[in-house]
C-alpha cells in the first residue's frame, strides 16, 4: 500500500511516501511562513520524483500536530480535502508519534518534544518503542520543559527540534540524570507519518476526512481567558 504522508506542523513542509512501512521518499521543504504557498507544489514534486501521481497512491497520512497552529490548520485542511477529493482513505497521525517512530530503533524509551512557540513551554509525549513501532505511555504533556524532569526515571532519548537546548535545561534542573538523557535533533517526517498511516489503514483504522481536526493541545488565548473568567 503506497501512502502519501504530509506534516506542516513545524518549520518545514514534510512530505513523504511509503510502501507499507518501507520508505520511498522523505523530503523536508523549508517553509517558515509560506507553508500554505508551497505545500501542494511540494506534494506534487515528491509524487513526480517517485514517478507517481495522486491517483497512484492508496492512502494519505496527515500529521495532526501539535505544533504551529497555522501550520497544522494548513496541513490538516490539505490532507482532508485531498483525501475527500481524490477519494482516498486518510489517517491522522500525531506529530509526536511520528517523531518517536522515526527514532524508534535508537532507544527503548523516547520523549518526543515540540516547541509550543511560547518560552520553554513544550508539547511532549513518552513512547515505548519496539522494532516495528511505538506505543504512547500516558497522556500528552503541555508545560514547561522543567516539569518533565521528575518524570524521567529510566534512560530516555529526547527527540525533536532544538532538542539539545531542552536537554541542557533538563540537566541543569537535575544533573544526576546526565547519563540517562540523550538527545536527537529531528524534524517532522512525512515518511514517518506515511508509515504510521499505512499501518493504521491496513488495519482498517481510517479517519473520516470531513471530521479530521488538528491536535492543538492548547486552547487559544481567548479560550483560556474566557474559561478563566467564567470560573470566577
Amino acid at each position: 500500500m503506497i501512502v502519501l504522508g504530509i506534516d506542516t506542523s513545524g518549520y518545514v513542509n514534510a512530505v513523504g511516501l511509503a510502501d507499507g512501512t518501507r520508505v520511498l521518499a522523505d523530503v523536508a521543504f523549508p517553509a517558515k511562513t509560506d507553508s500554505l504557498e508551497q505545500i501542494v507544489d511540494n506534494i506534487d514534486s515528491v509524487l513526480k520524483s517517485a514517478g507517481l501521481s495522486l491517483e497512484d497512491i492508496q492512502g494519505i497520512g496527515v500529521g495532526l500536530g501539535p505544533g504551529s497552529w497555522t501550520g497544522i490548520k494548513v496541513g490538516v485542511t490539505v490532507g482532508k480535502m485531498l483525501a475527500f477529493s481524490a477519494d482516498k482513505p486518510v489517517a491522522g497521525i500525531p506529530t509526536l508519534e511520528a517523531l518517536a517512530y522515526a527514532a524508534r530503533k535508537k532507544s527503548l524509551f523516547i520523549y518526543a518534544v515540540i516547541n509550543s512557540g511560547v518560552g520553554d513551554t513544550v508539547y511532549a509525549a513518552r513512547y515505548h518503542t519496539s522494532k516495528n513501532g511505538v506505543s504512547q505511555e500516558g497522556e500528552y504533556f503541555t508545560g514547561s520543559i522543567k516539569d518533565l524532569v521528575p518524570l524521567i526515571n529510566e534512560p530516555v532519548l529526547l527527540v525533536g527540534g532544538d532538542i539539545k537546548r531542552y536537554r541542557d535545561i533538563i540537566l541543569k534542573e537535575n544533573p544526576l540524570i546526565r547519563n540517562k538523557v540523550k538527545a536527537l535533533e529531528a524534524l517532522p517526517s512525512g515518511a514517518a507519518v506515511a508509515c504510521l498511516a499505512a499501518v493504521r489503514l491496513a488495519r482498517g483504522m481510517k479517519d473520516n476526512p470531513l471530521s479530521l481536526t488538528p491536535l492543538y493541545l492548547k486552547e487559544s488565548t481567548a479560550e483560556v481567558f474566557i474559561n478563566k473568567y467564567k470560573v470566577k
Binding site: K73, V76, T77, K80, M81, T213, P214, S220, T221, E223
Partner: peptide
C-alpha cells in the same frame, strides 16, 4: 455571542472543523 466578536484563532479553528462538511 460567547466572545462578543470574532476572535481570529477561534474562528480559524472552527473553519478547519467545518470546511469539509460545508463543501460536501
Amino acid at each position: 455571542k460567547k466572545y462578543g466578536g470574532v476572535v481570529p484563532e477561534v474562528a480559524a479553528r472552527r473553519h478547519t472543523e467545518l470546511i469539509g462538511y460545508v463543501i460536501k
